[in-house]
Structure formats: C-alpha cells, structure tokens
Design a protein around this nucleic acid. Sequence first.
DNA 1: CGACCGATTGACTATTTTCAAGTGGTGTGG
DNA 2: CCACACCACTTGAAAATAGTCAATCGGTCG
Lengths: 245, 245
Amino acid sequence: MSHIKCKGHCLTCPVRNRSIFSDIPESTLEETIKDFHTSVITFESGESIFRQNEDSSESAYTLRKGLIKITKSLPDGRVQIVRVLVAGDLFGMDGFGYENYNHTATALTDAEVCRLPLQDLTTLRQNHREVDASIMSRFVKNLRQTENMVLELGAKRASEKLASFILRLSQADNKSALNNGDVWLSLPLSRAEIGSLLGLTIETVSRFFSDWKRKGFIKESKSTLQIIDAEGLKEAACSEGSCDE
Amino acid sequence: MSHIKCKGHCLTCPVRNRSIFSDIPESTLEETIKDFHTSVITFESGESIFRQNEDSSESAYTLRKGLIKITKSLPDGRVQIVRVLVAGDLFGMDGFGYENYNHTATALTDAEVCRLPLQDLTTLRQNHREVDASIMSRFVKNLRQTENMVLELGAKRASEKLASFILRLSQADNKSALNNGDVWLSLPLSRAEIGSLLGLTIETVSRFFSDWKRKGFIKESKSTLQIIDAEGLKEAACSEGSCDE
DNA sequence: CGACCGATTGACTATTTTCAAGTGGTGTGG
DNA sequence: CCACACCACTTGAAAATAGTCAATCGGTCG
C-alpha cells in the first residue's frame, strides 16, 4: 500500500542536489518551503502514483528513490511505456494546462516520491528564477527525450531499437559513476517491459538478446547486463549502411 | 529563398488571438514589445527554418501562415515527422535548456513565421503572467501530443495508425470551423509524408487508402479527403476487439 | 517436491516492406 | 496541340520482418 510518510524534508532529501530545489541555497531553503504542502509518499513496486485520464493533475512529483515507468494504454489493454524515471526526475506537470494526467505513473520498484501541489510550484517559480529555469529546462529535456522516442519507434527496426536501448543504458550508467571498461549495468526492466518500451513482443526481445549473447556482444546474469562488444552491437543493429547515431 | 520581411506587427498579426500574445490587451501591446527584436520571416515550401543539431537555439518561433513539419532523422537518411504545426503554434524552444535544436523545422507550404529571441521571451514571461501560463500550457500540450505519438507508433499496427490519423484530422477540422455532416478535409501531406509521420512506407499508406476507398469509407480528390463512414473506418482499423480511443 | 513465473526456443502465420512495373495527371517545349 | 518527361501515386509479387502460439527450460518459493 502507498503510504504518506510526512511533510518532505528538503535538507535531508536524497535527491536534494538533483531536484529542482538544487539551486536554492540551504540557508533559505526552510524559509522558502515553510508554507508548502509537500508530502513524501512511498509506493510498493507495481502501485500507481496517478492514472491516465482518471486522476486530477493537482500535483507534480519528484522521484526520491526507486524507478517509475510512465505509460499510456489503448482501450484494448495494449500498453506503451513512454519513459522511465530515475531519482531526481520531476514528473506529472500536466496541471499547467490540463485537468487530468495524460499518462499513468507506476512504480517499477519500491519507490519514494515527493508530492508538490502545483500551486506551490507556481509560487516557487515566481519567487525563484533558478527554479523556474530548472523547470523549463526539464520540460525541454523531457520533450526532447520523447521526440527521440518517436524517432526510435517510428523509424527503426527491432534490432536497432534494442541495440540503441542497450547502448543508451550504458551511456546513462557511465555518466552516473566512474566506470572503466567492462561494466555490469543493472537492467531493471523485464523482457515484457523492454518490449513495451520499444514496441516489441517479449519473444522478439528475447530472440535478439539470445542471439547477441551467442555472438559474444553481451552477457547477462540476474538482471544485470554487460556490454562486451559495443561495436559489434552497433553493426548488428544496422542491417547494412550507417544507421545509428 | 527565405526572406526577412520586417519587425513583427503584433496588432495586425494574422494569429494575434491564437498566439502567446493573445492575452495581452491591445492597449499595452505596443509598449510591451517595443524593445523586442522580433522578425517576420517567410519561407518557401521545402525550406527549413532551423536544423537538428546544427542551428543555435537562440530564438523561438510562432507560425503565422502555412504549415511546418518538425522532423528528426537518422544518419542513414531515414526521416521521422514528429509533429505538424499549424498557424498560431509556438515552436523551437530548445534554448530553454540546450544550445541547439533537437529537430528540424521545414515548411510544408509557403510559410510565414515570427522569430522571437529567447531573451525577449524570457523578459516577456517575467513581466506577463498570462504569457508565462500560456507558454507552460503549450509545453504541456506539446509533450502530451508527443507522448500520444509514442503510443501511436509503438502500440498500433499500420491500419490503426492510418485510421486514427484520418479521424484526428477530421476532429481538428471540426474544431476550427462549423461543419455539418460530410466535409472535405484538406490533406496537406503527401503519401510519403503521411508515411514518415506514422512510421510506414508510401506503399502501405497507399494500399490502405485504396482499400478504404473501394469499401466506401473515404473519398479523395486533389489533396482533399472526405470521411464517408467513420464507424467503418474505426472497425477496419481494429483487427478484432475494441482498440481505438 | 511441485507450482509458478519469467525467459527461451521452435514452428508457423501475419503484417509490412521491398522491388518492380504501370497509371494518370501536369507542365513544358517543339 | 501533341509528345514527352516528370512526379506522385497505385498495384502486384516476392521477401523480410515481427508476431502468435505452444512447448520447454530454469530458477524461486512455499
């Protein structure tokens, strides 16, 4: 069950330096948020934070711990993962233009979020130019990522989608920590979820993974993944000519 | 050739009431923009306004006349249309977070845009809450549309993509003017462009169109399109069970 | 041990693309 | 005014790609 812990404590927030509050100096932070109605809420894996077309978009959220998937679904039950959120990400800002959320947010792991009423966020934006800039920048980043997703889904074939997904994963990981050479990446998504992210079936995902393991491009054990031969992967992904970025 | 006409004249702007300036009263409009460095620029069909990863994202744009396509492309030349802009749309706001544009904007028809330096836009946002709200709302709308695109491309099959594209077109048209019953919609996109928007080949698009014409669901003549049987279309698009929104 | 669940694999099918040929309309130059 | 080229679109046949269905594997948990 989801559980409201308490009012958020920014100073001890695990994503303090990655959140939209990162540019507010510690000295004025308490003062800034003292009238805000923030809540820290925990969710178990599988629980939804809000639902497409159902929940009122009164609050935005910051992910403090865990992973969350943003999904959209068709009436017949087909589900598309639109984006995967990591700690520090701001999400659920539909309220700036609409009454309800356009997508569903579901915890992929046990997760902890900070709920921030849009009204407070608006006040914050007006009083803190850095926060406003940070939010704008996140909007742009978000939009760009989603546009990139459109390119991935619309223009690439299965092997290309999968290969660039894996390579992107390794890039994201390389940024987050110092990594030398061969690294085990955590792969928090099941085959079904990878499929749902890339518009493929479980079987198709599984087949290419198996193929690439046999060819020695990747290794896998217990939801971690190792890229042995990135070049091989890239070539395998491209049928013939140059293809991936 | 693209051609800079002059400094923009908001009062006589054809999209005055649909632009982000719509909520600024006429009485203060001239005063508000007097120090801005806006330009009205015309483009011939096929010319690009800015290019993915090449042009510096110093300015945002408002489309005054014509149609523009936003595209992303792969190194091997495959192109994906991400969105089609209509008069009044604000675009090219990458500068709020990045140095360059993430996509290419190309005129689909002869077009006229108003260029607005991001610096001016920032000033405007700070001084006019309505404009700020309008921009936020457009960001959200944009993001939602792009997310919807991700669902279309990732979760639907060809016939479903095409059918919902046509039905969406008719909805957009119904909103813009009073229309009773059977209406001829303008279809400004070629088969190739529709394909590029939906992640399909020219031939696939052509085949379904032909099929639906034979079945009497749609009629077409000279880049206009008429929906005869929307229900038929919906059912044709859905293989079996319920599928479309 | 047995049930269960995610992943794998094979055989088959459906869908979509590719390649190729042909149609029809439009505009240009002789 | 006709011949011609050009272009977008259409259509057919074959091939590639991805999906479906079904059986199986392997690990985990009670």
